[in-house]
Structure formats: structure tokens, C-alpha cells
Design a protein around this nucleic acid. Structure first.
Lengths: 245, 245
DNA sequence: CGGTTTATTGACGATGCTCAACTTTCGTGG
DNA sequence: CCACGAAAGTTGAGCATCGTCAATAAACCG
């Protein structure tokens, strides 16, 4: 794993068309190419500690990372799930506001913060794309606030599964028809931290959805969805709309 | 109210140094001046309906607006509180994702979306400032996710009051020392919608904080805080850190 | 195959919600 | 200026949901 990404040409990068560099032309890409470097993290490893000095920013190339916040007494809330192409860090701020942890093995495409800041000041395409991505994340965070503040445990679980399913469908570009099935990239505890629940409640509600035929489980992580509309109904979302991302 | 803002010169604008135009030089300001117009809204009036076509963006000049999301069965969650200088709308998206409502009488400085989009493509200072503001809002939204997902009702109320108090202190640039007091800009129901509680629970917890001497009430809206550190402790935040905004 | 991590399930209790009565505040018109 | 009615807020009783603690089961990994 470690060495697979020692140097990938930007043109061949799997996240080329979705990441912060999506809008760059050949010249801009060449500039990025010069200052980028790859870093790998093992599952469970902390990428950045909240409050730490951040001397780099970057994109998730592969794997999943999570953004979490922890209270003094140990209560924890996940505030973002970082997927391939998502951006980590914030130009203009020197310390991290949240913990970033590798949920699976993660490869990141990093830029030292200073050169990157110079670059976004000079290449509008990077700044424009970053603004667009940040606005999308803000919308997603606000959608999540509805879930955290108002949804029941059952609705929270159904929402999480349907979001993962939607993402899966979007990635493989197949319409969400017929028998959809997905792998949960999170443990029960991580789901609990994401949904503002305890892991016991997560487990119970997954069992309940299974018992009611809304989902089927194969192993602990693999979920089949016989009827996606039924799941969306359970999630309590408007039938038409839904979460962006 | 209505006519106070028929035409204010940008140079004299009360939010000049905090809004999306904060970094603009004289020339850029002149451009903005040409395409801006003011709109007033009465307390309770809806500024934008979720799903509606948005043909303008703009800044809150005075008053308070709220960003809310409502489920089919009526459950409601406030996902943002818009204060003077906050930006409304999103370049690059044609329909609104949330309801925007005037909580008090509100005056907005508006720009038609198309000209504004052209402008941010050409004047980097506006785009830069907008990115900065969006990143701040994202951080604030994520802090709020911790509150919604993990804090107790009592902690939620204490957090809300301390945030309003901090903002008050920041605005008047007086250190948060001595006997601080603030006006709550929200009804109990609006607080409930913001905090993910019912209005009854909000009322009960305010009464409890009063009984325990953490706050004092004068009327329904005016809160005095004899000991701000005590309040912050009740809010469950790290003593040092705290919410940006 | 054994040990560790992860997940499930149960019993019980606490926190916050629902429904309802009542009080206070505020704005309006007599 | 007071009185009235509506809106906003408070308080209580009972209950549902979800959290806590604990025991057990399943999955995963050398």
C-alpha cells in the first residue's frame, strides 16, 4: 500500500475530476504536481489532532477518514466523513479544529500549506473549486443537523444506510434500481458517533430494520436493500429530495 | 425602517468590514455599488422558501434571520442563525436548500445572482472573502453538530446563552468580565428548533439554570450572567477553546 | 484453534417528549 | 389608561425512547 502512491501523475489520478484540482488546466496541474506529495495512514491512525499546528492540506485519494470532536468526559461526535476527493484542512487557519482519523487505510495527496495558499491566491480555478466543495460540505453538514436534532434512532440508521447506498450508486453510475447492496464502512461504534447514538441503540435498530424486512444482513458489514423506496420512507426524508453529496 | 436603507453608500455601511465585501478595494466597491439593492422584511416573513428558484444572493445588514429545515410531519430544525454581515445564498446553485425566515425585522443588501457570479469570477477579493466566510460557517455547523448529537438539554441551553453572550461581548468589544447581560433574540420555540428540543424542555431548563443561580431573568428575554465561567462549565465546552463565530 | 475485538440482546432507569392546565406578557382598541 | 384577548411562557403528570450496565454471541486474526 505504502508505495503504490510514491508518485502518480495528476493526469492519472483517480480523483482528478472531483477533487480540489478538478477545474485545473494543464499548466495549473503542473504547478500542483511540483508541490504535492503522498502520505499513507493505517486504519485507526490519527492524521491530525484537534488543536495541532497544521502545516499541510490535502485530498483523500483512497480510503475513508473521519472528522470527530470529543468532549472532556469522552463523549464523541463525528462531524464529517471524508471520502476520496474530499479536502482536508483550511487555508488561512494554522491549527486544526477537529481530529482527523483514518477509518480505513488512507492515502492522501498533500500540499504544504504555505505554497498551497500562494497557489490559491494565484490560480482562481483551485479557489473556485474549493469554494464549491466547501459550500457542498456546508449543505451536507446542515442536512446532518436535521438528522441529529430531530430524527429518531430508527430514522437515523435508515438515513445512514440510504446515504451510503446513494453514494455507492453514484460511484458505480448504476441507477438505484433492483436489489441494491452496500458495505458499511463503519463499525457500530463509529456509526453511533456519527448518528449521535450509543452503539447498543445502533445495533438494536439495525436488528429491528432487519426483522421488519427493510434490509438484509450478510455478515456484520454487508447490507442488502430489497426496496430502496421503503428504506427512504423509513429515513423520513422527502421522497423526492434528499441529501446532496 | 423600510426607507432607511434606500441607498447607503458602501463606505458608510455598518457591515462593511465583516461582510462578503470586507476585502474589496475602492474600485471593487464601486462595482458592487452598481448592482446592489436593499430589501426589507418584517419579523416572521419568509425571505426564501426551500426549493424555490433563487435569483439573488446577499448580506444581512440588520436584524436576524434563520435558516430552517422542516420534515413532512412538521418536525423542524434550525440549521443556522444569520446575523448582520452573514451571507445568504450560494453562487452556482439555482434553488435554495433551506427556508430563510426573518426572525426580527431584517434589511438585506442584495445582488442579482448572475451579475454577482460574474463578479466573483473577476474580483478575487470577493471570492476569497466568501471562501473564508463559508469555511467559518462550516466550522460553526460542525460545532453545532456536537451540541445536537451529544449534549444534554441543560448543556444545550447553557451553550446557546454563552454563544449569544460571547457574540454580544465581541460586538461591543468589551471583555467578558463582570456582570454580563444579554437579550435572547429567539422565542422559546425558536430556541427549541435551534437546539433540537421541545419548547417545554427549553422552558424547564431555563428555569433550572435560574433556580441554580447560573443565570438571572428580567422579563422573558433578558438574561443576566453573574459568572460567565460557571455558565461555560455548564455548557460542557472545553474551558479554553470554544465555538468560533 | 484460541484469544481478542466487535456485535447482539436483555433488564432497568433516566432524560426528554406529549398532553394539558395555568400564568404571564404584550398589543390593541374601547 | 385600563381591559381584553391572543400569544408566549411555565409547570405538572405520565410515558416513550434511548442510554447504561451487563452477559452472551459472533466474527476476525494470527
Amino acid at each position: 500500500m505504502q508505495d503504490h502512491f510514491v508518485h502518480v501523475q495528476c493526469g492519472d489520478c483517480p480523483i482528478r475530476h472531483r477533487a480540489v484540482c478538478a477545474r485545473c488546466d494543464t499548466d495549473e496541474l503542473a504547478e500542483l504536481e511540483q508541490i504535492k506529495y503522498y502520505r499513507s495512514f493505517q486504519a485507526g491512525q490519527t492524521i491530525i489532532w484537534s488543536g495541532d499546528r497544521m502545516d499541510f492540506v490535502g485530498s483523500v485519494v483512497s480510503g475513508i477518514a473521519s472528522l470527530t470532536q470529543t468532549m472532556e468526559d469522552g463523549r464523541r461526535q463525528m462531524v464529517g466523513l471524508l471520502l476520496p476527493s474530499d479536502f482536508v484542512g483550511r487555508p488561512g487557519r494554522s491549527t486544526a479544529a477537529f481530529d482527523v482519523t483514518a477509518t480505513t487505510d488512507v492515502v492522501m495527496c498533500c500540499f504544504r500549506k504555505k505554497p498551497f495558499e500562494t497557489l490559491i491566491a494565484e490560480t482562481p480555478h483551485v479557489a473556485q473549486r474549493l469554494l464549491e466543495m466547501t459550500l457542498d460540505e456546508l449543505d451536507a453538514a446542515r442536512e446532518w443537523m436535521l438528522l441529529l436534532g430531530r430524527k429518531t434512532a430508527r430514522e437515523k440508521i435508515a438515513s445512514l444506510i440510504s446515504i451510503i447506498a446513494r453514494r455507492e450508486a453514484a460511484l458505480h453510475k448504476k441507477k438505484a434500481s433492483g436489489n441494491l447492496s452496500v458495505d458499511l464502512p463503519l463499525t457500530r461504534e463509529e456509526m453511533a458517533d456519527y448518528l449521535g447514538l450509543t452503539l447498543e441503540t445502533v445495533s438494536r435498530q439495525i436488528s429491528a430494520l432487519k426483522k421488519d424486512g427493510v434490509i438484509t444482513l450478510e455478515g456484520n458489514r454487508h447490507v442488502s436493500i430489497p426496496d430502496i423506496d421503503r428504506l427512504l420512507e423509513e429515513a423520513g426524508d422527502d421522497t423526492d429530495g434528499g441529501l446532496p453529496v
